[in-house]
């Protein structure tokens, strides 16, 4: 459907459920994909499941130097960079009154500050080549809020605001910047919910089921495509209708 042949994409958090699906779908559409994450063995496993061209680019997003090295190594490995997917994210949930400084700082560092540093480096490359796609994976929680996730919600809302600002700066250079806000997506985390929790969540979702990582990845493929050239500064909500914004 969408052809990404010749495009070079970097996906952070490619060892996780959604990141992995995004990497696979981008590769399926023809892109060369750089897989980034901390667990190299998992990245290797993801790479082995992809028939296209892949590069493993380990990076610890809570380490500043590691973050700064990632875009240059991706450019070197793939010969350029057309698509950046800031997907990596962590949670450190706690009720707000009890939230520790470290819980706040860790989440902001990985989810927002790393995305800032990577986007800053990527935008430079993309502006020069007059083409680029930056996609941030945010969350429905960044728009609606969620108890126990003050830090996470702030980081995800921050990603949306940052993306809109960059989008306005670089639109004239054929670089688009968008975010995808998944709702409840089936993952190792949602597998651990008990039946009562699960039913409680499902009651809030008009589609009556959890989403799949592939359904999120499909949105990323579209935003990465040439066809999406007139879409910028937007948030694509993929949430089964649980929030209609």
């Amino acid at each position: 459907m969408f052809d990404l042949s010749g495009k070079r994409a970097l996906v952070t958090g490619a060892s996780g459920g959604i990141g992995r699906a995004i990497a696979e779908k981008l590769a399926e559409a023809g892109a060369t994909v750089g897989l980034s994450g901390t667990r190299v063995n998992v990245l290797e496993e993801v790479a082995s499941g992809i028939s296209g061209d892949t590069h493993i680019l380990p990076c610890n997003l809570s380490d500043k130097d590691s973050v700064d090295a990632l875009i240059p190594s991706a450019v070197e490995a793939m010969g350029g960079l057309d698509i950046l997917v800031n997907n990596a994210g962590i949670t450190r949930d706690n009720i707000f009154m009890r939230m520790k400084d470290e819980e706040w700082d860790d989440v902001i560092a990985v989810n927002l500050t790393a995305a800032f540093r990577l986007s800053r480096a990527a935008v430079k490359v993309m502006m020069k080549q007059r083409y680029g796609r930056i996609i941030g994976i945010t969350s429905v929680v960044g728009v609606t809020g969620n108890p126990g996730q003050g830090n996470y919600a702030a980081s995800k809302a921050g990603l949306i605001g940052m993306s809109k600002a960059i989008a306005q700066e670089v639109a004239s250079r054929n670089v688009t910047v968008n975010t995808i806000a998944p709702g409840f997506i089936a993952s190792a985390m949602t597998d651990e919910l008990n039946e009562k929790q699960r039913d409680g969540i499902l009651a809030t979702i008009p589609t009556g089921r959890l989403g799949t990582a592939d359904e999120v990845a499909a949105g990323a493929v579209f935003l990465a495509s040439d066809e999406a050239s007139y879409v910028t500064g937007q948030t694509m909500h993929i949430n089964g209708g649980m929030a209609m914004i």
Binding site: K124, M127, K128, E169, V170, S172, R173
Partner: peptide, 9 residues
Amino acid sequence: SLDQVELVM
């Protein structure tokens, strides 16, 4: 301002 950054690059 973007042109200026690009000129420097």
